[in-house]
Every structure is written in structure tokens, then in C-alpha cells.
Amino acid sequence: MRQRTDGTAPDPVDVRLGTRLAELRAERGWSLDELAERTGVSRSTLSRAERAEISPTAALLNRLCAVHGRTMSQLLGEVEARPAPVVRAADQQVWTDRAAGFVRRSVSPPHAGLRGELVEGRLAAGADLAYDRPPVPGLEQHIWVLEGELEVTAQDTAHRLDAGDCLRLRVWGPTRFRCPGPGDARYVLAVVLP
């Protein structure tokens, strides 16, 4: 999580995201303590994320998505103003986890009646993202590296991918995305719900 210490107003996406997270918790009738127990995230961190006092990291959002049965793209898509059949480059939502060196662009966000989505990911050289579980068990992923080098570990198997390579898999357990460098890695992630 990233805390605002400069006195600036919360990012509008963080405000909408916090509101949606609070709605999802309320829909299930969970208290903050119950959600903390289910996610392994402290009650105060969850509360601060819901109030947009902090900007959640990719790892935190992944844990919340897992308990709510959503992909990260679905969750972020739910906080967009409205879905559209054509997603213009200027309208594609970009989310940044500065601490992790990760930038995520929702190229083709989730849409009613569609099971797939496209995400552009950028990892800075040396960045290492670990997810302790998939947001939806059995999630199908296709990872196509456009630039740089990417190491993806799934089901205890590490895959080294160079520009042009594509890894196809179903995600059942922890995954790890690492950019060994020397340059940044840019990739397309196609996600298909089971």
C-alpha cells in the first residue's frame, strides 16, 4: 500500500475503488475483522483502503479479488464510469504500483457477456511481483512478451520468456512475475474466466 503523505487529495480511481471494496464487503455481510481474517490483511489497512487513505498495492488487490471471486481487471472495471464496446487508448485505465515497479493498462476491460480481457503489463528491471493465489481458481492466462525479458513462475515451474514468447496456462496456485533486466519488460496478459 502507498500512503499519501504530501497532503494531496486521493486519486479519483482510489476513491471509487475504495467505495467498491466497501460495497463488496457489505454485500457479503462481512465486518472488517471478518475480511481481515479471510485475506490475512490487517483490519486497519482494509479500512484505510476503503476510505482511500492509501492506494492499494497489486498484492493487496489480489488478496481482495480472491475472496470476492473476481479478477483484478473485473474489480478495476467495476470502478470505471461505464463500459464501452470500443476502448480508445486514451480511455484505457492505467493503474500503477510504484513501490513494486508495475504499471497495468486495462486494454480490453471485463464486459458483460464476455469471458476474456486484455491487460498490458510493464515491469521495471528488477521488479518482482508475487501473488499468493489466483483471484479465480483455474483462471486461464496467456502471457505474450512484447519487449524485454520476463520470468513467470506457476505451479512451482519457472518459465523464462523473451520478446515474442507466449506462455499459456491455467492458474491454480501462487504465481510470480519477475523482470530480471537489464531493461524493463512489457507484455500482454490475456485473461479468460473458467
Rank of each mutant, 00 (worst) to 15 (best):
M1L: 15
R2Q: 15
G7K: 08
A9L: 14
P10E: 09
D11V: 03
P12A: 06
P12N: 11
P12H: 10
V13W: 02
V15H: 06
R16Q: 05
T19V: 14
T19M: 13
R20D: 05
L21W: 00
A22N: 09
E23C: 06
L24H: 06
L24I: 12
R25P: 05
E27T: 14
R28W: 10
G29N: 12
W30D: 11
W30K: 07
S31G: 13
L35F: 06
E37W: 06
E37F: 07
R38W: 04
R38D: 04
T39N: 12
G40I: 01
S42A: 10
S42V: 03
L46N: 00
R48L: 10
A49P: 02
A49R: 00
E50V: 04
R51I: 03
A52N: 04
A52E: 03
E53C: 00
S55I: 01
S55A: 05
T57K: 05
A59I: 10
L60C: 11
L61N: 00
N62L: 11
N62A: 14
R63C: 07
L64Q: 01
A66P: 03
V67G: 10
R70Q: 05
S73Q: 13
S73T: 12
S73G: 14
S73K: 08
Q74L: 03
L76C: 02
L76A: 02
L76M: 05
G77H: 07
E78D: 05
P83V: 06
A84T: 10
P85N: 08
Q92C: 07
Q93P: 03
Q93G: 05
Q93C: 05
Q93D: 05
V94I: 03
W95F: 12
T96V: 07
T96F: 03
R98G: 08
A99L: 15
A100W: 03
V103M: 03
S106I: 06
P109E: 04
H111N: 13
H111V: 08
A112G: 13
L114H: 13
L114E: 12
G116E: 14
L118H: 10
V119D: 00
G121E: 04
R122M: 14
L123F: 08
L123E: 01
A124R: 11
A124F: 12
G126M: 01
A127E: 00
D128N: 04
D132H: 08
P135T: 05
V136F: 04
V136D: 02
V136T: 05
P137Q: 08
G138L: 01
E140N: 09
Q141E: 13
H142T: 15
W144E: 14
E147S: 09
A158P: 05
R160A: 14
D162L: 11
C166D: 13
L167Y: 15
R170H: 09
R170N: 04
P174E: 11
P174S: 12
T175V: 12
R176Y: 11
F177L: 14
R178D: 08
R178E: 08
C179W: 00
G181T: 05
P182W: 13
P182N: 11
A190K: 15
V192K: 02
V192W: 01
L193D: 02
